[in-house]
């Protein structure tokens, strides 16, 4: 087992055996697996929840025209949610690394303090970046809040940076040289796409239209919320979030304006969380 896909399959097996539902990526642009409804809504409310999935994550500002070995406008996260977290959650995580073939006793593994925060989701947690020989390979977070709502119970979110872990497993220096399958490299799959999206996000995207689209989706989200249609509202919130990222990468936002865009997305996310708790979780709890 050495390919990118084998690594994913091994993680799937490992977390399935830990009782996780293996769900699919969500079909909208998003900056991180946290935005997938399986996480955003799953961590809300009292119901125990264990899911795992791959999430292609778009961060326009991180694009490097396909020229940086480990930075991309779109990378792949492996996301695990454990709610409530078991007491041995750190060990469990380390065992998952062993399960995909990392020999941890050969390496330097550190849990380095890094508290996570998503201002657009109104979410924060505390935890670590996990370093393997100094390289960040996982964000490990005890969520404390989501959509502005205090979580009870809390959840642990594990976000593996798959490209980086694969570098270790395959002994490569650049993600573009990774084997995705025996016959296919990561570069063949994604390098040209990386280049094009960098051109688009940094140079060509229409600021004017992105602003307009943001406004449209925001209006649509609000209308859905008024109708109690929380899932469609959340989809439009995700689109707003991605359009904000696009505007940001394009360098179109001055600081103050940037803050106001973040606040607008956060207000939507918060309303989605509250509506979900009231209408969906509340309805489930009702006799």
């Amino acid at each position: 087992m050495n390919t990118f896909q084998d690594m994913v399959l091994a993680l799937h097996r490992f977390w399935r055996d830990q009782g996780c539902a293996i769900v699919e990526p969500y079909d909208l642009e998003k900056g991180a697996g946290t935005f997938n409804p399986a996480t955003f809504f799953g961590v809300l409310g009292p119901r125990p929840w264990r899911v795992a999935y791959v999430e292609p994550s778009r961060r326009p500002a991180d694009g490097r025209y396909g020229e940086n070995p480990i930075r991309f406008g779109l990378h792949h996260q492996y996301q695990v949610i454990l709610k409530p977290p078991p007491a041995d959650v750190q060990d469990l995580y380390l065992r998952s690394l062993e399960a995909i073939g990392l020999k941890l006793r050969e390496h330097d593994v550190k849990f380095s303090h890094d508290d996570w925060e998503s201002p657009t989701l109104g979410a924060w947690g505390v935890g670590w970046q996990v370093w393997l020989d100094g390289m960040e390979i996982t964000q490990f977070t005890y969520f404390q809040q989501m959509g502005g709502v205090d979580l009870d119970p809390v959840s642990v979110e594990l976000t593996y940076g798959l490209e980086r872990i694969a570098l270790f497993l395959q002994g490569r220096e650049s993600a573009f040289d990774l084997r995705w399958a025996e016959w296919l490299t990561y570069g063949e799959l994604f390098r040209e796409r990386e280049r094009q999206f960098s051109v688009y996000h940094f140079e060509k995207a229409s600021v004017e239209r992105a602003r307009q689209m943001f406004d449209f989706h925001e209006a649509e989200a609000k209308e859905c919320l008024a109708l109690g249609l929380v899932f469609p509202a959340y989809d439009h919130t995700l689109r707003c979030s991605h359009l904000f990222n696009t505007l940001d990468a394009r360098g179109a936002l001055a600081t103050a304006e940037r803050e106001s865009y973040i606040a607008r997305v956060r207000a939507l996310a918060r309303a989605c969380a509250e509506t979900y708790l009231a209408e969906v979780v509340g309805a489930r709890a009702a006799p």
Binding site: N68, P69, I70, R105, E106, H107, D108, V109, K110, L132, D133, G134, M135, L167, F168, E173
Partner: peptide
């Protein structure tokens, strides 16, 4: 750098040099 524990210094050194190279790039 100071590694945690008694991992293989060659492996760790290689990893350290890689992250340093990436960050300096």
């Amino acid at each position: 750098g100071f590694a945690e524990g008694e991992g293989n210094p060659q492996v760790i050194r290689q990893g350290y040099e890689r992250v340093v190279g990436i960050r300096l790039r």
